[in-house]
């Protein structure tokens, strides 16, 4: 499998960028000609991942979030969302449905479950104090 195209963007951890992030990733992946449902799956998963960076990784608006998309010749899109924030103590626990560390705010604890449901693959690696890397994969139907 060869990479046929690639993009990378760095955005600030401001909540207004959540919309930009999912639209930018969706626009880039559009060249693989996804169905509307596939595109909505991807935008939803990206929105969850970027919101996690903004709500959990950083509690300030000047953190950096890296978004990278790689398109492969077998119609596969790989999206990497990385932050340099506070990291996740227990990734296994964070992946459980309804687990959230946000008490007062209205967080559902469903972010990773939704990413898992809407994408073909989800991989999360994290180091407390160093940051988190989320890899999302989707096969686009031909």
């Amino acid at each position: 499998m060869k990479i046929i195209n690639e993009m990378k963007a760095i955005i600030s951890s401001k909540s207004v960028n959540e919309g930009y992030a999912r639209v930018a990733v969706g626009a880039f992946i559009a060249q693989l000609d996804p169905t509307l449902d596939e595109l909505a799956d991807i935008k939803t998963a990206v929105s969850e991942a970027v919101t996690n960076c903004i709500v959990h990784a950083y509690d300030r608006p000047d953190g950096k979030i890296m978004i990278q998309v790689k398109l492969y010749d077998n119609n596969r899109a790989v999206i990497i969302i990385k932050d340099w924030g506070k990291g996740i103590e227990d990734v296994k626990k964070a992946l459980e449905p309804c687990f959230t560390t946000s008490e007062g705010e209205e967080r559902s604890g469903m972010g990773f479950t939704i990413m898992e449901t809407f994408m073909d693959k989800l991989r999360v690696t994290s180091k407390p104090g160093k940051g988190t890397r989320v890899v999302l994969e989707k096969y686009i139907s031909k």
Partner: peptide
């Protein structure tokens, strides 16, 4: 036209 899990949080709140 679009909703992520924040919509669930909003409904439950």
């Amino acid at each position: 036209s679009f909703m992520d899990s924040s919509g669930f949080g909003f409904v439950m709140g």
